[in-house]
Amino acid sequence: MSWLSILREDLSAAKHRDPAANSSIELILGYPGLQAIWSHRITHRMWLRGWRVSARLISLWTRMVTGVEIHPGATIGRRFFIDHATGVVIGETAEIGDDVMLYQDVTLGGRSLEPVKRHPTLLDGVVVGAGARVLGPITIGRNAQVGANAVVVRDVPDGAVVVGVPGVIKKPQGDLQEQWAEDPAIWI
């Protein structure tokens, strides 16, 4: 897949996921999450080619400009989107699948000082709510949702909703809109 195709997919994902987006120009110039993702796509290639200091310096500059810190070693899939962006931190060994969305102030952090896989894996279609902390070498299953401000330190199965501190898994039953009215902790 060409660079231009990847950038177009990211732009399309941002348009699709943010109802406040009015134009491609607005997204390109005014969305720090999108800018951070594009910068990461460059620094990740540099990282893989062994240009690690240069990749880290660009990553540092991107963090200063966008408020988003994505380690160049993190692996990020297609059509990734960070809404509002500020305060997002994604660690070195994090792996993010396709069609994943994060809101502001999310941390995909480690729980070890050893040079091993120490950050989470988010499979395809995951949504992580504002302020959530997903910590350690755990896996968040396909199409799972992590509620706002949840702290998740254990694996989450496909399609589940996890909320609270510590994170508690809830399997959605029936109409989510109806559940949200009864349990506001489910709101992403």
Rank of each mutant, 00 (worst) to 15 (best):
R63K: 09
V152T: 07
A74D: 08
R41V: 10
V126P: 04
T121Q: 11
A74P: 06
I90R: 06
I58W: 01
T93D: 11
W61A: 13
G131M: 08
A130V: 06
G125V: 05
V88Q: 04
R118P: 10
Q104F: 05
A181H: 11
S24F: 02
Q179L: 14
I70T: 06
P32M: 05
L48A: 13
P166M: 01
L57K: 01
G30L: 06
W38H: 11
P72V: 13
I37G: 00
S2I: 10
Y31K: 03
G109D: 13
P172A: 03
T139P: 08
L113T: 11
K170G: 00
V65R: 14
T43N: 05
T93E: 11
A132M: 10
S59Q: 04
D10G: 06
P137I: 11
Q177G: 11
A55Q: 07
A185F: 03
I186F: 14
G129K: 09
F80M: 07
L113R: 12
V65N: 02
G87E: 01
I140S: 10
E92L: 10
H44S: 14
A150D: 10
R79L: 04
N149H: 12
W3P: 01
A20S: 13
V53D: 00
R8L: 14
L123F: 03
S23Y: 07
F81G: 01
A132F: 09
A185E: 14
D183I: 00
L122R: 07
Q145N: 05
D105S: 15
D99M: 05
R154W: 04
P32H: 04
I25L: 15
N149Q: 14
G167Q: 08
D10V: 07
L34H: 03
A130G: 07
P172D: 09
V168Q: 15
N143F: 04
A144S: 13
V151N: 06
V88L: 02
V151G: 04
T93F: 13
G110V: 14
Q177I: 03
G97D: 08
L27I: 15
I138V: 14
L57Q: 07
I70W: 06
D124Y: 02
W3N: 12
H84E: 05
A181V: 08
R133C: 09
N143D: 15
G125K: 08
R154K: 15
I188G: 02
P157N: 05
K117N: 14
I186T: 06
R154G: 02
M46D: 02
D124T: 08
A36D: 04
A74W: 03
Q35T: 08
V88A: 05
L29C: 10
R63T: 06
P157E: 06
I76Q: 07
A55V: 04
T93I: 12
Q177H: 12
E95Y: 08
L60K: 04
L29V: 08
T93K: 08
E9S: 12
E178S: 01
P137H: 13
K170A: 00
I90P: 06
I58Y: 00
S12Q: 13
L102N: 02
W187P: 00
D83E: 02
Q173T: 13
I58V: 15
